[in-house]
Amino acid sequence: MIADTNYCRITHEDRGVADLTFCNSESLNINGTPTIAGVTAAISEMSGNDSVRALVQA
């Protein structure tokens, strides 16, 4: 696992693919300010990992 926030999780596979999964999506539209901040923080944390070649949103 690369990053885990209240709003998303990023996992990394050996072949260079990272999967971004939204968490706590009880409401139909979770793309509010806290979610965007959580995703931004997770992606920023992942950005320093040179073994990640692709990010897939799940």
Rank of each mutant, 00 (worst) to 15 (best):
M1T: 14
I2A: 03
I2E: 00
A3L: 05
A3D: 04
D4P: 05
D4S: 14
D4Y: 07
T5L: 09
T5F: 12
N6H: 15
Y7G: 02
C8R: 00
C8T: 06
C8A: 14
R9I: 09
I10V: 11
T11W: 07
E13W: 06
R15K: 12
G16S: 09
G16I: 04
G16C: 04
A18V: 02
A18F: 02
D19A: 04
L20D: 01
L20V: 10
L20F: 07
T21R: 15
T21Y: 10
F22Y: 11
C23W: 06
N24C: 07
N24D: 11
N24W: 06
N24A: 12
E26K: 08
E26S: 10
S27D: 10
S27C: 06
S27P: 02
L28P: 05
L28R: 07
N29I: 12
N29W: 14
G32L: 11
T33W: 15
T33S: 09
T33E: 14
T33D: 13
P34A: 06
P34N: 04
P34F: 05
A37T: 06
A37Q: 09
V39Q: 00
V39G: 00
T40Y: 13
T40C: 13
T40M: 08
A41N: 03
A42N: 02
A42W: 00
A42G: 04
A42H: 01
S44V: 15
M46L: 12
S47G: 10
G48W: 02
G48D: 04
G48Q: 04
N49T: 11
N49W: 09
N49Y: 14
D50W: 01
D50V: 06
D50K: 11
D50L: 09
S51I: 03
S51M: 03
V52E: 00
V52I: 15
V52M: 03
V52Q: 01
R53Y: 04
A54I: 05
A54V: 11
L55V: 14
V56E: 07
V56T: 07
V56D: 04
Q57V: 13
A58S: 12
A58C: 08
A58P: 12
A58H: 08
